[in-house]
Design a binder for these strands. Structure first.
Length: 300
DNA sequence: GGCCAGGACTCAA
DNA sequence: TTGAGTCATGGC
């Protein structure tokens, strides 16, 4: 039976200091990503809405971002959710001119605004996905991390077919709660990662943690709630705070990528201590997350 | 072959 | 509260 689908396009006015191509370059920076598909001028992914799943394609013209929504039925609230999703994902609701002014003040970073012009702090909108992704990526190289994430998503995630292309959404907490340790071990998850993911899924299924209520709390309270989960340490809490909760004052202390970027641009030790890091970040108060993100980008 | 990856935990002292 | 050991595997 053929299912009739509806297509609708929504426009978002592009903010100042924004480059869709720079953001696409970031999304397409060379890792085997299973949750979205980047083509030359667009990115497509499946997202979870309150009323079900939708396939969206984001592209741009001179002035607007264009969201093409593909879903069996599209209500006003579906449209609004897609709109909000893209704003959150690309961090469009933020004036980053202050950040660029700060970058230009210092010799170490003065070329960043040109080199990465218009790059936004690309987020992970789904809080559960963000936490799980951190656990997956802990202490293993990113290529391998993407490999096992793909196995997880293909087995437990939701899937839709569009033409001959399959699109996946990250598994729901319940799906990962139901996954057995044996199954995950077969996908080459370590016992620790299996436990940690199970812990995160448990907390989400019990509704002890959700994004909307976290967003009503202070950053310290948010961090405490995340750190209470065994498997979530300071690095993960800061990463998620930056990429999903959109706090602007996060630093991923101890991060290997951040360390090498600081070594490269600020001539620090190969693994600078927290004091050194704080000293460098202090002038960027309020933009630490963006500096952290741009420093990561400067390695690629 | 050895060392380190977008860490975090346990356990000993 | 600090440091060593552990995890599992890929890539260099």
């Amino acid at each position: 039976m053929e299912i009739k689908r509806i297509i609708k396009t929504v426009k978002i006015k592009q903010p100042a200091n924004f480059s869709f191509n720079r953001c696409l370059e970031f999304l397409n920076r060379g890792y085997a990503e299973c949750l979205y598909m980047v083509s030359e001028h667009a990115v497509k992914r499946m997202i979870r809405l309150t009323s079900g799943f939708a396939l969206i394609e984001v592209s741009a013209d001179m002035q607007y971002l264009l969201i093409r929504i593909d879903k069996a039925e599209i209500t006003h609230s579906d449209t609004k959710e897609c709109y909000d999703y893209v704003i959150d994902w690309f961090d469009l609701d933020r004036d980053i001119s202050g950040f660029y002014q700060l970058l230009e003040k210092y010799a170490e970073t003065e070329n960043f605004p040109k080199k990465y012009y218009g790059l936004r702090l690309i987020g992970i909108v789904d809080l559960f996905e963000a936490l799980c992704w951190c656990v997956i990526g802990q202490q293993i190289n990113l290529n391998f991390a993407h490999k096992i994430k793909t196995r997880l998503v293909h087995k437990y995630g939701n899937k839709i077919l569009a033409g001959d292309q399959a699109y996946y959404a990250f598994p729901a907490p319940q799906a990962l709660l139901n996954a057995t340790p044996e199954e995950l071990a077969l996908m080459q998850f370590s016992r620790q990662k299996i436990n940690y993911i199970h812990n995160i899924a448990t907390v989400f299924c019990a509704n002890e943690l959700n994004k909307s209520s976290l967003l009503t709390l202070s950053k310290t309270e948010q961090m405490d709630q995340m750190l209470a989960i065994k498997g979530v340490g300071p690095w993960t809490a800061n990463y998620v705070s930056m990429k999903s909760l959109r706090n602007m004052n996060c630093i991923t202390y101890g991060d290997t990528g951040l360390s090498s970027a600081l070594h490269k641009h600020f001539n620090t030790a190969k693994k600078p201590d927290d004091n050194t890091i704080n000293k460098i970040f202090r002038p960027f108060a309020g933009w630490e997350s963006y500096l952290n993100f741009y420093l990561w980008r400067s390695l690629g």
